[in-house]
Design a protein around this nucleic acid. Structure first.
Lengths: 336, 336
DNA sequence: CTGTTAGCGCTTTCAA
DNA sequence: TTGAAAGCGCTAACAG
């Protein structure tokens, strides 16, 4: 009953006949008008309208070897962190006539590899990953196929192809520098057990210059885990002055636990998060955190893929979008 | 340089030759093994492996008239409300071999119509909307094309095709009933200016049995707008006992404004939100709200499309997933 | 169980 | 500026 197109769709043939031209002329009139006379264009457009023509991109793509689709592979769409990236990606692509195919890897290598194959099967014109591709098999296959690839939200010495991200090492380092500038020496870390969190921790420790109390929690991080993390850290050092958290969710929990214990923030304990979530500015006290322009990452990634598809020379296949520390009340009384 | 597939991909032909069978047999061995002898299957699989075969779904779809793609049209992906739906949709589809093409309508009719055309052009096997399709032109076109359509997150007397949602009228009515049950007569509404919010307000008023102070705020609703909304409502009735907010974000703002004015919640003012956002359970006080199973909506919608594509008889093309009021501290001292 | 034939709807290439 | 021929890579329909 519904294989997909139960109605007999009008084809370019029908349009051509209606317009009294050859199919190829009709094709050109609709998708490459420069090659056709004004008069013909009008005739064909009228004919297309008359027969209710809707082009079949599958057929076009088969011949032209361009699907006008780009794959976007995220761990899960519900990671709020990546939403502005996905949104900007989708928008920028749509403006250029491309659509995004969404794939959720679920942090699973096997699933990721399967999805990559699927996207190649669909002849996606490019693949954008939120994160790096870690599986060696997948990296190798992507390189061999030669499909445009953009990795994002991280830096790498050897990206598969193109990359838009920032240095998590530097983030950790910057936060440590910020803490040191405030004169806090007794500091701790509450971090998720993921790759990027580990990098930030590494940068943090390098700048602090010593090991510090650390609570590692499993992904996905949450308020509840943040509470437990602070309890853990206070056990390691009851006189902690400042905590860096690898996500704003975790920081939210740390703040809640501090409140429950009657520890004043920031007077007795300073807290810094990561991600600049919606709620960060509105917490009590408002949360100091690290902001990353996720929308810019999406826009830039989309543009890189589009440029590649158009053979536009690409100036910089690796873009560092940087980050910024947003100081709020949770680390500074002088902030609103 | 990179039209899409710069490398010369192996085709089914190459696999067939390598295996010493005809192309169609190779095709069947890989995608419909029941029709082929065990021995042949093994030969073909080995051949596919050997030549590094990656099927071309574009070509298959052209012939078989099934693209194995389903369009998901959302206003914006960053509406947190719809995330569980999109996630479940993507997952359920992927498990059945379908991929989701994401489209963002941006609450714009023209854009929505353009996207629908695009998805038809791509021969999507189905379209899932978060919300109803309001443009008459679009509804008409979708009906004529006969493509499986699922509208969600709402009910309708005349869905285009299939529907998974719940009654916003009943939500409003249920909240009003809950307020009345608590003995609160001086109640108010803070609501967004959207269609569904208006329906809930209508249900609320019908059950309360009289008009009540209302503050309407423009979308997207936010904490800041919630603060202003409460100020507005208190101007209309300084002795307000309870407020229903059309989103948890709004409720967050109402709570913040109450706190700023020294109004105790729930003792002096009760507050109810909508959506059961992540943060609702963790606010101070925790927020009473309305929960909707967005993931179930996504799963069911995906299943409906899949069933349609497989000509599986559909028992119930309209599913009401209901909702539930989650009582927390913002309306009840006896809650944790 | 396997093969032949034909063609999905479009666009590339070449020629007029 | 327009057209004819050919075929992208795959699978439905039928025959063997």
């Amino acid at each position: 009953m519904h294989p997909a197109t139960p109605f007999k769709a009008a084809t370019l043939h029908d349009v051509a006949r209606q317009a009294g031209v050859s199919p190829i002329t009709a094709s050109r009139a609709l998708s490459n008008p420069k090659l056709v006379s004004e008069n013909t264009i009008l005739k064909v457009q009228a004919a297309a309208q008359a027969v209710g023509y809707i082009p079949n991109l599958l057929a076009g793509g088969l011949k032209s070897k361009r699907s006008l689709m780009v794959a976007g592979l995220v761990p899960t769409i519900s990671v709020a962190q990546f939403l502005p990236t996905v949104q900007a990606l989708t928008e920028t692509l749509a403006d250029a006539g491309y659509q995004l195919i969404l794939g959720q890897t679920g942090y699973d290598h096997a699933r990721e590899e399967a999805l990559i194959n699927t996207m190649i099967s669909r002849r996606a014109d490019g693949i954008v990953f939120t994160g790096l591709v870690h599986s060696a098999t997948a990296r190798e296959r992507l390189r061999r196929v030669g499909i445009p690839v953009v990795e994002t939200w991280d830096l790498s010495e050897r990206p598969i192809d193109m990359l838009v991200g920032f240095s998590h090492l530097k983030v950790g380092s910057a936060i440590a520098g910020y803490f040191l500038g405030k004169g806090w020496q007794r500091v701790g870390i509450a971090t998720g057990d993921d790759h990027r969190g580990a990098l930030r921790r590494e940068g943090f420790l390098a700048t602090i210059g010593k090991d510090v109390p650390t609570a590692v929690v499993p992904a996905p991080s949450s308020l509840a885990l943040g509470r437990r993390a602070l309890a853990d850290l206070l056990r390691q050092d009851p006189k902690l002055q400042a905590v860096y958290c690898s996500s704003d969710q975790l920081a939210q929990g740390v703040l809640a636990e501090a409140q429950a214990r009657g520890i004043r923030v920031p007077q007795e304990l300073a807290v810094c998060g990561f991600g600049n979530a919606d709620f960060a500015a509105h917490m009590q006290p408002s949360l100091t955190t690290v902001h990353v322009d996720g929308a810019a990452i999406g826009r830039l990634a989309a543009q890189l893929v589009i440029d590649r598809c158009n053979d536009t020379p690409i100036q910089n296949p690796v873009v560092d979008v940087g980050f910024s520390i947003i100081e709020r009340r949770s680390t500074s009384l002088s902030q609103a």
